[in-house]
Each structure stands twice: as structure tokens, then as C-alpha cells.
Nucleic acid binder design. Structure first.
Lengths: 333, 333
DNA sequence: ATAAATAAGTAAAACGTTTTACTATTCAAT
DNA sequence: ATTGAATAGTAAAACGTTTTACTTATTTAT
């Protein structure tokens, strides 16, 4: 069965293609098409199950009703939850999402942007990585709506939605100190994005403010692409060698690895070692003992992203960029 | 800056559009274009950064190099992991994925299929729900490649990749019985797909085979869209009222809710109550005590899906449908 | 009775490709 | 010298829409 085209409908109704198009797009009344014709054509469309070819539509109009979502890794629950929320909200406005994971690989990310470009997506929601500055700038120059989230890139004037990571780690360290902890460790990644450096800065600043000297040996920077076994080995060393009495994990997957390591040792979380994880996860809630975590307001972040992008999509003029930063909350467990 | 078209390249190179198109598509040698022209054009393309408009390409060729992935919920870790694996493998073959979540809503799922159709995706990977039979049949009639996974729909002759759920629940119950458990409960959902009914059947059959009478009161069917608080209340009742001594959860999100409930009670997992969850999750590994789980071979499932769909995509003739069923493994913890 | 305005609708160009069928030139073989 | 094939390339149609500029018939205002 050949799929129907607008022409088939036009022939069937005995009117021109133009007329059918006007009707489909709700411009019939504007263009003074009679009620009788409108009814007739609508009936034929409904009965035939005709659906406009979006590809042809895109080619002609230059837009696609698709938003491209570029994230680090869809299998990370932080991203998959955000993705779900964004998808949901976008869907209600008639937009679809195409997503892809960068795996923190600059080349892959660039390809993704290109591929989204050549598919004429209407807007971009990106959790960026270093090295993408030029490509993103190009999108901006072409005046495509772009929203960065979770991370921003210095030197790029864009819309941004994220959380106050500096404050979150600062307060985490503060809470350790108030519990009497002295040897506070940070497990973070080497990826070079503002969000991650902010976390380190907050950590350092809190130490300094409370008169504890920063000790490099207490900071573990894990490479993003390294094997989990190696990560675990490094953590094991950190937890045992030094008499660390608190550890702050800068991402949830690091915290999960860390908890696996700790499970093998005799170290008692809460007693010998206080732990705070970043980005809440069911694991932390169900763990015995419960693991405190920095919780970003996912729902609000997703809402802000979608608001911003929809606003841009529907405005003909270039709007001012906005930076929206939410406070994260420490869930004490 | 207007985006470049093939015409711009043609003009710049002083050749026809046709020639440029042949070169882009690697048909130049076939079509006897001289090396000199090929080199020249390729150079111009590289320098200008021209990228073909995929929309126009799709319109002309009728395919998109996009595979549509329809799942229940991207924020469920089972699906997000599968999605990630599929995305990865598809990407390597030059295919992109568009995904969307159905939330087990038939209407939404139908709309998604339509939207994928009108975007001319080349193939469909679907974790289906009851009520989609006709729409999927239509895709098959239009001879589009379709792979169902995780669940199949009775009466539909398609490719399918999944796990042997009957066996998995059978063995789970068996393992409970061998531990001396008698009052074995099943917490499952009401969604009416084969994969879920199979799980129930395996549970029943094992009971019967071991001479335990099936007791309806021990089976809790949770509605997919109900509030988590209600689910928890129902579970609480189940765990306390009856002297249940084992519980098998038919999905990971149900198990997670269940563990949250159990955490509030004095019931000791492993002592008063044996637990097995379905679809492994970090929570189960890290839980104290560890929670046994039925683990589907995600990597193999994803690989099989992608193999099947790529094979269909590259074959001109209609291939025989295949049903690939993997054994799931019970991870004892 | 006529000009102007409105109603009802359409023809055709355009979006950016791919592909078919064609032309023109050169070369090799008889 | 002529034919047939190979070489090198191109013109134009087609994919399915949207949209601009137009036509024709009817109504309204004078």
C-alpha cells in the first residue's frame, strides 16, 4: 500500500493541493475556504488516515519540531531522569526529542551536533564538554536556540540551567566538619568542565574557611573512561592508606563504586567514615546505613530547560540569555 | 551565514550538481568521474564544511538512517541501559536512534508510532504494550523492519528478542522452596503483556510442581500508573498480614519500592523473609544484606536486537522472523 | 451601472537532494 | 573511415510539502 500524499487527498476531494494544505494547517478560514469544502476534506483525511510527511514538511519549512538532547550518558540515572522529564514536557507541546550520549568524547559530541544540524533540529539542549566551544558558538551564530545544562562552558554566552555546585560541596564539607571530621576526602573526575571544578573549589574553600589545610593526597581524580576495577583499586588505597574520616563523592556513579569498595572493607560508614554522595539515587536511600546525598532539583531543572527553549522557539527575535541556577539540597541520612 | 547546499559546491567547483552528488555518495568511480574532479570537489567540500541536508536526502530516498526506539520508560534503569547499548552499536553502523517512552499508555504509543512513521524512520525497536497489535501489524504490512523486545504480543508474527521469564520465575520460586520457604509471595504489575504473564505462570507452575497450593492472596498486582504511596501501602499489608516468608518482585522498580517498605519494618531480609528481585540493579548489589536478583543478559539482548535490525535493513528481501530468547541468570546474594 | 472589495480557490515555485536518461568526446578495433 | 564501446559528465524529474502571487466570480457601495 503506497502511503498517501496530500495529492491523493486533493484528487479524492476534487480540490487543489493548496486547499488541502491550508485546511491541514488550520489556515483555511484565513484563506477563505468555504465551510463545506473544509468539512469534506477533513472527512476524507480522517477516513483515509492520511498523515502529512514530516520530512517534506521539514524540507519546506526548515524546521522539524524536534529538539536535540545531548547528554553524557543516558544510562546514568541523573541524565535518564532529566531526559524523561524533558521528553514529557516537550511532548505536551508537540515537540519530540532525539537524544544521544557523548560518553565525554569530544569527537562523538561534534558528530552529534553535526548530525542534529543536518537533521534540522529546532533547538539544542546540551550537557556540554570541553572542546565543544566552537561548535556551540556556531549554533549560536546561526541563531539556533541552545540551552546548556548541568555544566556550562566558560567564555560562551548562552542560556544555562544548573545547580550551585560550589555551594553544595561547600556545605557538604561544612557538615562533615560540624560532625568533627578532619581528614575529608574528595573523589571526583578529571573531566574538565566548570561544574566539576566548581565542586572542587567549594570543597577547598570550605576547608580553608574552617582552618583545615588542603591536602592533595585526599583528592582522587578518576579518569572518565578508566576501567571500574582501576577506580576501585584507587579508592581502596585512598580509604585505607590515609586515615580519611569523611569522603565526598562528586558524582553518583563514583559514589556507587565507592560504596562497593567500602562494602568489602571493615570500614563502618557513619562511624569510621562519613559519606556524602552527589546526585541522589535509590541506592543511597536504601543503603544501610542511609547515605547522605546532594540532591539537585531535577523537576525544576527540567522545567526551566523546557521553558527556556520553548520561549526561544516561539520568539522571532533573539532573547537575552538567562542563567538559572538552583540550590541543591543535602539530604541527611 | 546561509547554510551551504550542494549547489554552492557545484558552482564553486564549476561542475554540475549531479557530479557533486555522485562524489559525495562514493559513486564517482562507477559513474566515471575523473580523479582530478573528484579531488577538487572533495577539497572544496572539506574546506567549506559542507554537510548534506539529511532531510532533503530522506525525502528523496525514503529512508532516514534513523531507528525508532519505543520503550516503557527511559528512566527505568533496565531500559536506559538497553537504550545505551543499542545506541552505541547503532551509532557504529551509522544509524541514529530516536527514542520515546510510552509510559504504558496505548494512546501515546500509537502517536509515537505515527510520528516515527511520518518521520520515515528506517526501522522500529519496540517494547510493546497490549493494544498496539494493529499498529505493529501495519508496520509489518508496510514491510518495515520491526524488532520487539522484552515483551512480545501474542498473535503477531515478528522478530523478538527477550529472556525466558517463565524459567526465571520458576527457578526463583524453586530456590525459595529449597531454602525451606513455604509462603511465597509474588509482587507484579497489572500490565497485560506476555512477559508479565509468563512470570506469573512460572511462579504458579513451580508452586504446583513442589506441591504448594497457589494462594491468590499472596499475589499482589500493582497498577502501573498508581501512586507509589499506594503501592507501598499494599505491600506493607502483604508483608505484615500474611506470614509471607519469601517474596519475588516481578520488576526492579517494584523491588525497590518493596525494599523501601521493608526498611521501615522489623522484618529481617534473609531471616524472616527471602527476597528475589527482577532485573538486576545497583541497589540490590549494595543493599545490606545483598538482594538476589534475576539478571537478564543486557549486552546480549542489545546485540541481538541490533544484529537483527541491521540484517533486515540491509536485506532487500523479507527475511524470516526470528525469536531469540536468552536465559536469565539468578544472582544469589 | 460600475468600481471596488471580498470570497473562494488555484498554479507554480521552492526547499535540497538522488537518480535516470541523456549528450558529447575520445579511443580501439575492424 | 567507420562503428562500437568506453569515458566524462550533465539536464531535469522526482520526493511531498508550504506559500506567494494570481484568477475568477460574487457582493457591496456609490
Amino acid at each position: 500500500m503506497k502511503t498517501l500524499s496530500i495529492k491523493d487527498i486533493a484528487v479524492e476531494a476534487g480540490v487543489s493541493i493548496t486547499t488541502v494544505s491550508f485546511i491541514i494547517n488550520g489556515k483555511a478560514r484565513d484563506k477563505s475556504i468555504s465551510e463545506a469544502v473544509i468539512k469534506k476534506v477533513e472527512k476524507i483525511i480522517a477516513e483515509s488516515g492520511y498523515k502529512p510527511n514530516q520530512i517534506a514538511r521539514s524540507l519546506r519549512t526548515g524546521n522539524s519540531n524536534i529538539i536535540g538532547l545531548i547528554i553524557e550518558d543516558i544510562s546514568n540515572s541523573f541524565f535518564s531522569r532529566i531526559a524523561r522529564l524533558i521528553e514529557d514536557k516537550a511532548y505536551k507541546k508537540g515537540y519530540k526529542i532525539i537524544y544521544s550520549s557523548t560518553e565525554n568524547n569530544v569527537e562523538k559530541a561534534k558528530e552529534l551536533i553535526n548530525m542534529f544540524k543536518s537533521r534540522k533540529v529546532d533547538g539544542y539542549i546540551i550537557s556540554p564538554i570541553k572542546g565543544l566551544e566552537e561548535d556551540i558558538q556556531q549554533l549560536l551564530t546561526d541563531s539556533k536556540p541552545v540551552i546548556l545544562f548541568d555544566r556550562s562552558l566558560p567564555g560562551l554566552d548562552t542560556n544555562y540551567v544548573g545547580a550551585d555546585h560550589f555551594k553544595a560541596t561547600y556545605e557538604s564539607v561544612e557538615s562533615f566538619i560540624k560532625q568533627g571530621r578532619k581528614k575529608i576526602s574528595l573523589v571526583t573526575t578529571d573531566i574538565d568542565v566548570q561544574q566539576i571544578t566548581e565542586r572542587l573549589d567549594g570543597y577547598k574553600k570550605a576547608l580553608v574557611d574552617y582552618g583545615i589545610t588542603y591536602d592533595e593526597n585526599l583528592v582522587l581524580k578518576v579518569y572518565f573512561n578508566q576501567e571500574e576495577s582501576e577506580t576501585r583499586a584507587q579508592m581502596e588505597k585512598l580509604f585505607s592508606n590515609v586515615e580519611t574520616d569523611a569522603v565526598l563523592f562528586a558524582t553518583n556513579y563514583l559514589a556507587i563504586s565507592g560504596l562497593k569498595v567500602l562494602k568489602q572493607t571493615k570500614i563502618k560508614i557513619g562511624k569510621n567514615l562519613s559519606v556524602i554522595a552527589y546526585d541522589d539515587h535509590e541506592v543511597f536511600e536504601l543503603h544501610t546505613p542511609g547515605i547522605s546525598a546532594v540532591q539537585q532539583p531535577l523537576e525544576e531543572i527540567a522545567e526551566a530547560i523546557i521553558q527556556l527553549i520553548l520561549r526561544q522557539l516561539s520568539s522571532k527575535t533573539k532573547l537575552d540569555n538567562e542563567q538559572i541556577v538552583f540550590s541543591a539540597k543535602i539530604i541527611q541520612r
